[in-house]
Simulated scan of single mutants.
Amino acid sequence: MVAIKNPYEGLPEHGCFCCSSKNPIGLKLSFWYDETNQTVETRWLPELNYQGYHGVLHGGIQSTLMDEVASWCIYILEGTAGVTHSMEIVYSKPMLIGKGQVVVRGRIDNREKRLVTVHVELFDGESNLCTTGKIKYFVFPPEIAKSKYGYPGRDAFLDGGE
């Protein structure tokens, strides 16, 4: 696993709820890339203020985590940027808070022209699979992602290479 650099972190306006260290109410996520398995993941320790039912991680927070990992899959595995097109989330079992750090892992499942489907899995702190998702992203051609949306290129996330 290789730690992924967040090239947006140096921008004064970067306040992403998920990945900015500057957002006081944000999740402050970091990401890792597994070149062998072609996956991107994050690890995060949920606290009770993110619960829905008592002791259960809110489903909206779960889907947010999964959407963010899907976005970073597009950055790293597709080498471009995009926007969420649709999400299909299946909550198989309650994600209990207090079991330790959760792991959210994504991989590219399908490519159809400019729509990329990312398969994402969310595991609780005891490595039980709790939630899965198929998240479709509308991806920009790399030159458009760079010129119009500030995508810095894949190498900026990997410090110039793997």
Rank of each mutant, 00 (worst) to 15 (best):
I4T: 08
N6L: 02
P7A: 05
Y8Q: 02
Y8L: 08
E9M: 12
E9W: 03
G10P: 06
L11V: 12
P12A: 13
P12Q: 10
E13A: 13
H14S: 11
H14F: 15
C18L: 07
C18D: 15
C19K: 05
S20Y: 06
G26D: 11
G26F: 09
W32M: 07
W32I: 03
N37T: 08
N37M: 06
V40W: 00
W44D: 04
G52V: 10
H54L: 12
I61Q: 01
Q62W: 02
T64Y: 03
L65T: 15
W72K: 01
C73L: 02
I74F: 00
I74T: 09
Y75G: 02
E78W: 05
E78T: 10
E78G: 06
G82D: 05
T84G: 10
H85W: 07
S86R: 03
S86G: 03
E88R: 11
I89G: 04
V90W: 02
K93W: 13
L96I: 15
Q101T: 15
Q101N: 05
V102G: 03
G106C: 04
I108C: 01
N110Q: 08
N110H: 07
E112K: 11
L115Y: 03
L115C: 03
T117Y: 01
H119K: 14
G125N: 12
S127V: 07
N128Y: 10
L129Y: 12
C130L: 07
T132I: 15
G133P: 08
I135S: 07
F140H: 12
P141T: 10
P142Q: 09
E143H: 12
E143G: 04
K146V: 14
S147L: 10
Y151I: 00
G153I: 02
R154L: 05
L158F: 02
G161A: 11
E162R: 05
